[in-house]
């Protein structure tokens, strides 16, 4: 009897907490999203109605920012994957006794405040940094081209900020690969590329799936990079939600946008996991 109860007792406090402060808020958010302003009330006063039109209005008004969020997040995720995969591979297979040191180095930058690092990028890529004058001297960019306040800067910032979320799961799954499978592949006359395509990549798929999800999800909801490195033309859905909440005090629209964002991400994630065929994520 005792044994059957143990796991439930262990789960109880944590799940009670998550129910109160994660599930209930989401339900509350759903309610808020269909509210309408009280006629004659002050700004910020809303009453509970079931106005689902809020969703359509919010989406149509902000579809550009929605699209941008998903495109930026997708590009940042692919870039992070391209940068991280060789890095994770090198740490797992080519770094010998320095493996742990390199792992610490991957995480280390993230002990410095992430906002300060983003601001640092802004200054490095800005007019007074060293990148722009160098590129101008070489002639890669023209004198009038700037790097900050562009979508390039925003995507680069996101790629940078979410990189360890990609590198660490990739490393975890590549490190688990038995090097003998790679040798066996070579013995069977596969060249380097074939070995990678047929052995390494499939065996590291769980890491690829986990890494892309852990990068894509925060990137799609991010607004800090767009706020610091971008311009009004690079606004993402996170920026809209933030300003609806704090500057315009339009809670229903903000809630509808948040809910749409979460639903869109959950659907994409489910489809992706199905397609990639790894149910065992967490």
């Amino acid at each position: 009897m005792q044994k059957i109860r143990t796991p439930y007792l262990l789960l109880l406090p944590g799940f009670a907490f998550l129910f109160t402060f994660f599930i209930l808020p989401i339900v509350n958010l759903a309610q808020t999203s269909t509210q309408t302003p009280i006629s004659g009330g002050d700004t910020g006063q809303y009453e509970q109605t079931l106005r689902f039109q809020n969703y359509i209005d919010a989406f149509i008004e902000n579809r550009e920012q929605f699209g941008r969020s998903f495109v930026y997040a997708l590009i940042a995720t692919l870039l992070a994957l391209a940068i991280s995969y060789p890095l994770a591979y090198a740490i797992a297979f080519k770094s010998g006794k320095y493996k742990n040191l390199f792992l610490v180095l991957v995480i280390a930058p993230f002990f410095t405040s992430f906002i300060l690092r983003t601001v640092a990028w802004k200054q490095i890529l800005g007019e007074e940094g060293f990148v722009v004058p160098t590129l101008r001297t070489i002639g890669i960019i023209s004198d009038s081209t700037t790097l900050t306040s562009t979508s390039f800067a925003v995507v680069m910032g996101m790629t940078y900020n979410f990189l360890p979320f990609m590198t660490l799961p990739l490393y975890a799954s590549i490190d688990r690969i038995d090097p003998r499978t790679l040798e066996a592949s070579g013995d069977l006359y596969a060249n380097g590329f074939t070995t990678f395509r047929k052995v390494t990549l499939p065996l590291s798929m769980p890491g690829v799936v986990a890494g892309t999800l852990l990068t894509f999800i925060p990137a799609a909801g991010d607004y800090v990079n767009a706020a610091i490195l971008g311009s009004p033309n690079t606004k993402m859905i996170g920026n809209v939600i933030e300003s609806r909440y704090f500057r315009i005090v339009d809670y229903p629209t903000a809630a509808a946008l948040s809910f749409t964002l979460m639903a869109a991400i959950l659907i994409l994630v489910t489809l992706y996991i199905r397609k990639a065929g790894t149910e065992e994520l967490v």
Binding site: P25, L29, I217, Y251, M262, V282
Partner: peptide
């Protein structure tokens, strides 16, 4: 356990504020 990780921070933050 997976859901809070699959929820963008802005949704977590906004929903708690609304609660």
């Amino acid at each position: 356990i997976f859901l809070p990780m699959a929820t963008p921070e802005i949704v977590l933050g906004a929903s708690l504020l609304s609660l």
